[in-house]
Amino acid sequence: MDKITIGIPRALLYYKYKDLWINFFEKLGCNVIVSPCSTKETLENGKKYLNDEACLSIKIYMGHVDYLKDKCDYVLVPRYVSLVKHEKLCTNFSCLYDLVRNKIDVPIINYNIDIDKKEDEFYAFTGMGLALGFKYAKVVKAYKDAKKDEKISSDKRLLKQKSILGSSKNIKILVAGHPYNMYDNLIGKPIIEFLKKNNIEVIYADIYDKKYLKSEVERITKRNYWTFNKELIGSISHHKKRMDGIILLTVFPCGPDSLSNEMIIRNVLDVPIIQLVIDELDSEAGIITRLESFIDILNERRQVHE
């Protein structure tokens, strides 16, 4: 029997679950293809499937699926509704599966996570493994091993960030955005590269110890119910004392961010904050100018404090 090839689009939740996904499928004995980093072409390809008001991240996602469509047996398109009880994710994640199914003619392997309806990750992954035709025991073992590997690599990233936080004397900026925006080649990469070129330590908001998440979030907002935004808010409140500045990185028109960022800007007053909204019209010069002046402000501020 030939090996099954699974395609994983390098967008949206890939940046959060890549270790879990790749390890799970490799332990099951599948080939895994990850689509290459997004380019202008990816965006152009993705745009034609969607309404022009859709957010930039999901347009890029469709472009990645489009790239994978004749290169693999199945494309992984999961559906996420809620990860924590009484909390939600952006509705884009819950319509993603049906969107891809209706718009792009490609075989899909799918799982559904909805904690409010008692569909958790273990149940979802075993269901997916069985649908691919593997034995139950093998699937369970693959899931558990993949979960362990995910833990190890996330610990590694946490340690690396901690060492930067402890040692470096440079200006530190917290980049607070969803992982799929921060690490994307089109959205976050140019900004982060520019910061690094200017000798600034970039701290990623998604890497931190989420032990005290609840109490940290409540310092800024009480009713927010988007899990990913809560994690960002928790990270900001966790890091802000050690930061020189915060960049709120978002795309146009992100639904949850529009309200949640407004709340952050109005409540976090002791650290300079800049909100960068990236849209598909490419205007890097404008963003670089704003960043330059932001960095100048931070430099001045530091000199005054010293």
């Binding site: 499937y49 969607l50 309404n51 008001e53 859709a54 957010c55 999901i58 952006c90 509705t91 884009n92 319509c95 993603l96 049906d98 969107l99 209706n102 718009k103 639904g255």
Partner: peptide, 9 residues
Amino acid sequence: TPEVGAIPI
């Protein structure tokens, strides 16, 4: 957001 997601369908 929900409607934008539903419009292609």
